[in-house]
Amino acid sequence: SQTQRTQDENEARRIAEEWKRRGYDVEVRNRNGHWEVTWD
């Protein structure tokens, strides 16, 4: 799996939607004030 971090929730949601469209299983988490998008 791969993880991308961002400070911006909207960006995190956009990234998550992009990977979901490509057929990946995606998880979005808030950790210590930043957002992590993990896909595999």
Rank of each mutant, 00 (worst) to 15 (best):
S1P: 15
S1E: 10
S1G: 13
S1F: 14
S1Q: 13
Q2E: 07
Q2M: 12
T3H: 07
T3V: 12
T3W: 12
T3S: 11
Q4W: 15
Q4F: 15
Q4E: 09
Q4G: 05
Q4V: 15
R5Y: 14
R5M: 13
R5T: 13
R5W: 15
R5S: 10
T6E: 04
T6M: 09
T6R: 03
T6Q: 03
T6P: 05
Q7F: 10
Q7E: 13
Q7K: 14
D8R: 04
D8E: 06
E9R: 04
E9P: 06
E9D: 03
E9K: 04
E9Y: 11
E9L: 07
N10K: 12
E11Y: 05
E11P: 00
E11W: 05
A12W: 02
A12P: 00
A12F: 02
A12Q: 01
R13G: 04
R13H: 10
R13A: 06
R14A: 12
R14I: 09
R14F: 06
R14G: 05
R14Y: 06
I15R: 03
I15V: 08
I15G: 01
I15L: 12
A16D: 01
A16G: 05
A16E: 06
A16Q: 05
A16T: 03
A16H: 02
E17R: 08
E17C: 08
E17G: 06
E17W: 08
E17N: 09
E17I: 06
E17P: 00
E17F: 07
E17Y: 06
E18M: 12
E18R: 07
E18I: 12
W19L: 15
W19Y: 11
W19Q: 05
W19G: 06
W19E: 02
K20N: 07
K20P: 00
K20H: 08
K20R: 14
K20E: 10
R21Y: 05
R21V: 09
R21M: 11
R21P: 01
R21G: 09
R22D: 04
R22G: 03
G23C: 14
G23N: 03
G23S: 01
G23V: 00
G23K: 02
G23Q: 01
G23R: 01
Y24M: 05
Y24A: 04
Y24Q: 03
Y24E: 02
Y24N: 02
D25K: 14
D25T: 14
D25S: 13
D25L: 13
D25N: 15
V26N: 01
V26W: 01
V26C: 04
V26L: 03
V26R: 00
V26H: 01
E27T: 14
V28H: 01
V28C: 04
V28G: 00
R29C: 10
R29Y: 12
R29T: 13
R29G: 05
R29E: 07
N30A: 08
N30W: 15
N30G: 05
N30P: 07
N30T: 06
N30I: 12
N30M: 13
R31A: 12
R31E: 11
R31T: 13
R31G: 06
R31H: 13
R31D: 10
N32T: 04
N32S: 06
N32F: 09
N32W: 06
G33T: 07
G33W: 02
G33K: 03
G33P: 02
H34W: 15
H34R: 08
H34P: 01
H34G: 09
H34N: 09
H34M: 15
H34D: 08
H34S: 10
H34E: 12
W35M: 01
W35S: 00
W35K: 00
W35F: 05
W35G: 00
W35C: 00
W35P: 00
E36V: 09
E36R: 02
V37F: 02
V37K: 00
V37H: 00
V37S: 00
T38I: 12
T38W: 11
T38Q: 08
T38F: 11
W39D: 01
W39M: 08
W39Y: 08
W39N: 03
W39C: 00
W39I: 14
D40G: 15
D40W: 15
D40N: 15
D40H: 15
D40K: 15
D40A: 15
